Simulated scan of single mutants.
Amino acid sequence: MRVFTTMRGVVWGKVLLGALALAGMSPGHAQAPARTATPVADYPNRPITIVVPFAAGTTTDQTGRFLAKHITDATRQPVIVQNLPGAEGFIGLQHVLRQPADGYTIVIGSNTTHAANVSLFKKLPYDPVRDFVPVTGIIIGGVTLVVRPDSPYNNVQDLVADARKQPGKLSFGWGNSSSRSGGEVLKELTGINILSVPYKALTTAITDVIGGQITMVFGDAPAVMPLVRAGKLKALGVSTTSRMPGYEDIPTIAEQGIKGYQASGWLAVFAPKGTPADVVAKLNAIIVPIMRTPEAATFFGQNAWKPFPGTPQELAQFQQREIQRWAELVKSAGIEQQ
């Protein structure tokens, strides 16, 4: 896989791979129930539940519902999408770990739940590596830097120049790890001092940009681009290395003079630890062809996301790189753990 943000001249996507020694599990970790084998020849022979650890209407939710429909079409078994939002994904993930590891409860994890949280929190109630089995990547994409339509900034250089004149006066809001990394990487690469303002939801941060309470937000395309097209927000740049499909009129942040700038978000399918390897392989064999269809490319491409299906091993390696990327970002940016 290839992604990844450049920071201080070091390309995070090229960090040395290897086993990442995570801290031992605390007593707060969810205790999984007894595991029972599921014969792969019969799998699936009853409904599957996809847990979405974020609210309805989010990109994660839309992705879960797309998968549910197409897994049902492929297997003739009902697929239920269960939204369990809250606490940075903790609630949904802990629920999954309380279910039998038989392939009938899976979860859509993200760069937040399965990478960033390792470094953003002093203690997690789950271990994103030990407690989960990678199945396949789903989609990957970037964020868009937006400001009010009457903002004096018409490009990223305008904003950076003003931030240098007024250290600490400009602010960016964030409601997930993707939106946070967008601002932190800009700070890191330019040396500007802009205030980081956390929100429980990205939508609230976007509302505050429109209302003038904060200067900017780095938002997922599905959340901000309809508002850009409606004239309620102004887009200054995108975080990807090339312009986003469907939004080619918006330049990348890197091409506006912020050399090496890149930030990304992603979604992937995980199963609870103990899920039989043959069931994981069957899940992978069901989902990967779905994500390689023209329909998937069109559905996700309209919101500037790209499918990135692959093997469980590829997802595991990708996840390790992302964990390392976040560890470096948290350290270099001086982000205080919660």
Rank of each mutant, 00 (worst) to 15 (best):
V3A: 08
G182D: 11
R321K: 13
W12A: 13
P312S: 06
M244V: 10
T136Q: 02
A41K: 13
Q62A: 14
Q324V: 07
A333N: 13
G183N: 08
A316M: 01
V156S: 06
A115S: 15
V330I: 12
A34H: 11
A201C: 00
I194K: 07
N154D: 10
Y43K: 02
D162T: 03
P294G: 05
L267K: 02
G9C: 07
I71H: 07
I258S: 06
V51E: 00
A223K: 00
P307C: 11
H29Y: 11
R76T: 10
L84I: 15
Q317M: 06
P33Q: 04
T190V: 05
N83L: 11
Y126T: 02
L22Q: 07
G246V: 09
G13R: 09
A87C: 08
V156I: 14
E314K: 04
A223Y: 10
P100A: 05
Q317T: 09
G274S: 03
I286L: 15
E248Y: 04
L145T: 05
A68Y: 12
V133I: 13
E322R: 04
N154I: 00
G89Y: 12
Q262A: 14
P152C: 04
T60C: 06
F90A: 12
L16E: 15
M216K: 03
L93M: 14
V288T: 15
T5C: 06
E322K: 05
P100H: 08
Q262C: 14
A74R: 14
L283N: 05
I194M: 15
Y126K: 02
G86F: 12
F318D: 05
Q320N: 11
L145Q: 13
I138F: 05
I206E: 10
V217D: 14
E88A: 13
F66L: 10
G265D: 07
L236M: 07
R180G: 08
G142I: 07
L267W: 07
K187A: 10
E295Y: 13
F132P: 00
V118Q: 04
V224Q: 07
F4C: 09
L202F: 11
A116P: 03
V288R: 10
S110F: 03
R180K: 14
K273Q: 15
R180F: 14
I250E: 10
I91A: 13
